[in-house]
Design a protein around this nucleic acid. Sequence first.
RNA 1: GCGAAAGUGGCGGAACUGGCAGACGCACCGGACUUAGGAUCCGGUAGCCGAAAGGCUAUGGGGGUUCGAAUCCCCCCUUUCGCACCA
Length: 854
Amino acid sequence: MADYTPQVIEQKWQARWRDARAFEVSADPSRPKFYCLEMFAYPSGHAHVGHVRNYMIGDVVARLKRMQDFNVLHPFGWDAFGLPAENAAIKHGTHPEAWTLANIAHMKGQLQRLGISYAWEREIATCLPEYYRWNQWLFIRMFERGLAYRRRSTVNWCSSCQTVLANEQVVDGGCWRCGTVVTTRDLEQWFFRITSYADELLDAIDDLTDWPEKVLTMQRNWIGRSEGARVRFPVLPPGGDTSTADAADAIEVFTTRIDTIYGATFVLLAPEHPMVARFAAETGGGASLVDRANRFRAQDRMARLTGEIEKEGFDTGRTVLNPFTRTPVPVWIANFVLPEYGTGAVMGVPAHDQRDFEFATKYRLPIKIVVQPESRPLGEGALEAAYSDEGRLVDSGEFTGMPASEAVIRMAEAARARGLGERTVQFRLKDWGISRQRYWGTPIPMIYCDGCGIVPVPDDQLPVLLPTIAEFSGRGDSPLAQVPEFVDVACPRCGRPARRETDTMDTFVDSSWYFYRFCDPRNAERPFDPADVAYWAPVDFYSGGVEHAILHLIYSRFFCRVFRDLGMVRHDEPFARLLTQGMVLKDGAVMSKSKGNVVDPDDMIGKYGADALRLYVMFVAPPEKEIEWTDAGLEGSFRFLARVWRLVDHLAGTLAAARAPVPGGAALDDDQRALRRKTHDTIRRVTQDLYPKAHLNTAISAVMELVNDLYLFCDRPDVGLGGRRADEDATPVTAGPGTLAVLKEAVEALVLMLSPFAPHMSEELWEALGHRDGVVAAGWPAFDEAVARPEAIVVPVQVNGKLRSRLTVRADVAEAELERLALADPVVRTHTDGKRVVKVVVARGRLVNVVVAS
RNA sequence: GCGAAAGUGGCGGAACUGGCAGACGCACCGGACUUAGGAUCCGGUAGCCGAAAGGCUAUGGGGGUUCGAAUCCCCCCUUUCGCACCA
């Protein structure tokens, strides 16, 4: 008997798969396709078990689907641009490219040693010009359609390093390298107009029926649609003269509660609001106004990091006209008003908004009740908190007496009729700022010409290559700006000297469409051939971390629509089914290099083999759940595989030689029929658990049960697998044709069912069973529902809902018979004797419940 | 604060559409085999009472619906995650 030596077997099969190009595919419209994708990887250096869990999950699905005769696209690639490469360059002097490519090489080896069945010939890395040129191409298409535009926006700035910082480089309000307090700077930056698709992205969420509800909720909240109205509060001159009020010169606010506008006793501006500068200019002592506003702006940055801030504000000394009450109300600047949401200005209705209430209480601003609940009227002056629920309007002019919900609509109409405002829909979702003042990213293909303005790089001059930079100091606002050969360029339109854009793109651009590139990864003419994408896309099964629930998955849905509107893809949604896999914890914490609790898959492969590692990770919990790493659990999986190995290895020669079709039912004895039933029932359970349910853990449980039954079945002299086995010479198998037939059926099904989880060992055993063409050619085992069905069933019998006995009966027993047997059961009788049987509930095949009254 | 999900043996977890709670594994205990066993094969293992048959209790806590609830409804507690002044 040969021992189970995973390392030898695994290398053998990995080489075979590679040589046979086993997982390479091409579009074939005559076959059903299945696109199985795991989120591609950032090449950080070494993959730990937490990273690779996702790839194992996807691999089980890919291998299953292949066996079910789908044409399976299962590609992999690298999200290879990004900040860590640049940080490594600054710290260690390695070039980002060298660092990245070395990491890719190492991690690719790790994945290959795990036996993940990727179509490696389709591998892509986003940092290569063959890939990123299509980012540039798409950017230009978006620019042409007004989907890419430029405006001023704020970035983090370290005055000591003289550099822009990404959000993740800001640590506790300071620079990650020197600790200097981070300030802000306004720069011209590029944006993608994702808000054009806000409504569609929101509405289509309802169609994503195979996504986790949690992710859909997060996306809905992120898009944050709210219906309301914009209302203009005319600006009054410094004296407060109401006769000059003019809706054209006004502070516009956004509100969802225009019904409360008669209670608006002040207006609040964000510190960044443009009106602040105007007031300062018009009013004496204006400088202090700007100073105080700026103090809020600085404070706001710190507050984001520390959590809570106290609501604060100050009076600008100016007033605006409440357009409904026609009375002047003061304008304040408040630190909690967000500049980027709505209009950056809100009306303060302290009686009916909790924030306004707190603000008004603090600064003794008037509180006016305009909505009264039906039941308990609110007492003026006795208000302890804002009342923001439904009610009827009071003190609201012609709208008095109207239900608030109706007034929301009526008053918006009135505002529009009077030219004071209109109904609008406001989104929390903002346009996507993609400019990064970084080196290691896709150069934005734009040229600035003094004569022609902003000119895109012509398509035939793409890609705009990233120049090689020798030194990374981490200083300066944009590394590319320091490379004259890069910056200086002739204007494509007029030929005169011009300057290139020196910012690079957010790496989320790269990951927003890579799943299309996989369909046609070597295309040098276009991002992809629409025919290839039409065949493969959408992705049927997409799995990855829940941390991408919002950004990556919304951006990808956005890009899908952009490509659709460019006529390049035909579907509306890129990912049909999404699975968010749980993290792997060790010692109660997420694995991370800094915590020093990472488990390297290579170490585990060295000890137990890739198959055991895969099986353990799949078995220990459902894929969506987090798992706690235990060495003991891995060892258990190894023991299970070794147990399968011993069983199959003992029988393989005999079974390979046996020509043993399963005889008709009557020819089998009870044990043989029971094994057959178990075999077919297991196939049924595993098939149903695996896809689309992805209950990988329970599928493995079912296979383990089959193995346990097989061991018991084989504990008979003519099979010779009783007693101790490990170091004993094999006893010859002398069983007759019936036994051999059911054994062969069971063992072959076992090996095939195990193959998505433990592919190397399964191939090895499949070969030992006399098959030359591998498990995919064999196909996924089929089950016969009639065989899987038990002949005899055990029916529990309850009395008043308490389990009292069990009846073993034929599966097709009649209800009346079941009732009769239940009432005759001696144990049941002890609980029913002397009592009146009220009724007997018979759930056929499942349970009998006898209800008695005492 | 708001929203979502989840609480089941010593542990990870299972349980179809409301129908035997604890599949499968880990750990532990016992048996066999053995010079040996940390290998292997077989068996046991929610708690309590009982010699056994059997009984009682049990799915975070409390109520409810039902012949019957881990599962459905209400209240509370805890944990995790997401959003956190979005007007």
